[in-house]
């Protein structure tokens, strides 16, 4: 077979997987998204046993497996832990490169928070820089209610 079909054109079936879906964030995380949407506040959740503050909130502590429900309000400022600059255009819809995203440790939280970096010179981003959340005008109860994190004036 191989010899006989070696010079034949290969047959390729092009297609799509198009799938609308939804994600219920659960009762606890709903409070986080409602606070973003209605009050432009970032809320973390605190473990009463090991004092870990997790953001975005989860209802189980990743460290000690306790159930979590105590909210703490954060001020939306934080420190850049690591980052990357995206130059690649993925075949799915998203942001237009080049853009940067980073992992931010929010003041008062013990976990990294991943988001886009905006109003920033891509050449001058640095680990350790101070950033703050900028909120979207039109907020819908999802993570993009935070438009991006931008450098705090004190960096400049």
């Amino acid at each position: 077979m191989r010899q006989e079909t070696a010079n034949q054109e290969p047959i390729i079936t092009p297609g799509w997987i198009i799938m609308p879906y939804k994600y219920s964030v659960g009762a606890l995380a709903s409070k986080f998204f409602i606070a973003l949407r209605d009050n432009k506040k970032i809320m973390g959740v605190k473990c009463s046993k090991c004092n870990l503050v997790i953001v975005p909130p989860r209802s189980i502590c990743s460290k000690c497996y306790s159930k979590l429900d105590e909210f703490v309000e954060l001020d939306g400022k934080g420190t850049l832990l690591t980052y990357t600059v995206v130059h690649y255009v993925p075949p799915v819809e998203g942001l237009k490169p080049p853009f940067a995203y980073g992992v931010i440790q929010l003041d008062g939280a013990d976990t990294g928070f991943t988001h886009i970096l905006g109003e920033v010179d891509l050449q001058s981003i640095d680990v350790g820089m101070r950033v703050e959340a900028v909120f979207n005008e039109n907020r819908q109860g999802n993570i993009l209610d935070i438009k991006y994190f931008r450098p705090l004036a004190s960096n400049l």
Partner: peptide
């Protein structure tokens, strides 16, 4: 309760 709608393509 928040349920977010998305599309995979």
């Amino acid at each position: 309760l928040i349920t977010q709608e998305m599309l995979l393509k």
